[in-house]
Amino acid sequence: MRAFVDPDLCIGCTQCAGICPAVFTMEGTLAVALVGEIPGEEVPAAVDAAQACPVSAIRMEES
């Protein structure tokens, strides 16, 4: 599974980085996702983080 953050939608609320810091980090005022495949043990937290995004800026895709 892979995660993508739309920089045009992200409002920099930091929720995703707080829920799943192994996959999401903040670069300045915007969130970014780990490039590439999410480690299997991090997938549940990454999905939770995507669902918690208040502006639906995170897209999860099956690899």
Score class of each variant (00 low, 15 high):
residue 4 F to H: 11
residue 1 M to Q: 08
residue 26 M to P: 08
residue 21 P to Q: 05
residue 36 G to E: 02
residue 7 P to N: 09
residue 44 P to R: 08
residue 25 T to L: 07
residue 23 V to P: 05
residue 16 C to P: 02
residue 32 V to W: 00
residue 63 S to G: 14
residue 20 C to S: 14
residue 56 S to L: 13
residue 8 D to E: 15
residue 43 V to L: 12
residue 38 I to M: 03
residue 33 A to Y: 01
residue 18 G to P: 00
residue 1 M to G: 13
residue 23 V to M: 08
residue 28 G to C: 12
residue 50 A to Y: 02
residue 46 A to G: 03
residue 1 M to F: 09
residue 35 V to T: 11
residue 51 Q to H: 06
residue 8 D to P: 04
residue 12 G to M: 08
residue 51 Q to K: 13
residue 1 M to K: 11
residue 22 A to T: 04
residue 15 Q to K: 13
residue 12 G to E: 09
residue 41 E to M: 04
residue 24 F to A: 04
residue 12 G to C: 09
residue 53 C to W: 05
residue 33 A to C: 06
residue 60 M to E: 04
residue 29 T to S: 13
residue 8 D to H: 14
residue 40 G to D: 15
residue 6 D to F: 04
residue 12 G to W: 10
residue 7 P to Q: 14
residue 41 E to L: 11
residue 7 P to A: 14
residue 7 P to R: 14
residue 1 M to P: 12
residue 36 G to Q: 01
residue 34 L to Y: 01
residue 45 A to P: 00
residue 21 P to S: 08
residue 9 L to P: 01
residue 23 V to N: 05
residue 7 P to D: 11
residue 48 D to Q: 14
residue 47 V to K: 13
residue 44 P to F: 03
residue 30 L to C: 03
residue 57 A to K: 05
residue 34 L to Q: 12
residue 12 G to D: 08
residue 50 A to C: 07
residue 22 A to N: 07
residue 10 C to W: 04
residue 18 G to W: 01
residue 15 Q to V: 06
residue 48 D to Y: 03
residue 55 V to K: 08
residue 47 V to Q: 15
residue 56 S to V: 05
residue 57 A to S: 14
residue 30 L to Q: 11
residue 58 I to H: 01
residue 55 V to F: 06
residue 43 V to N: 00
residue 14 T to D: 07
residue 37 E to G: 04
residue 24 F to G: 02
residue 32 V to T: 14
residue 11 I to L: 06
residue 5 V to C: 05
residue 61 E to Y: 08
residue 33 A to F: 00
residue 25 T to V: 11
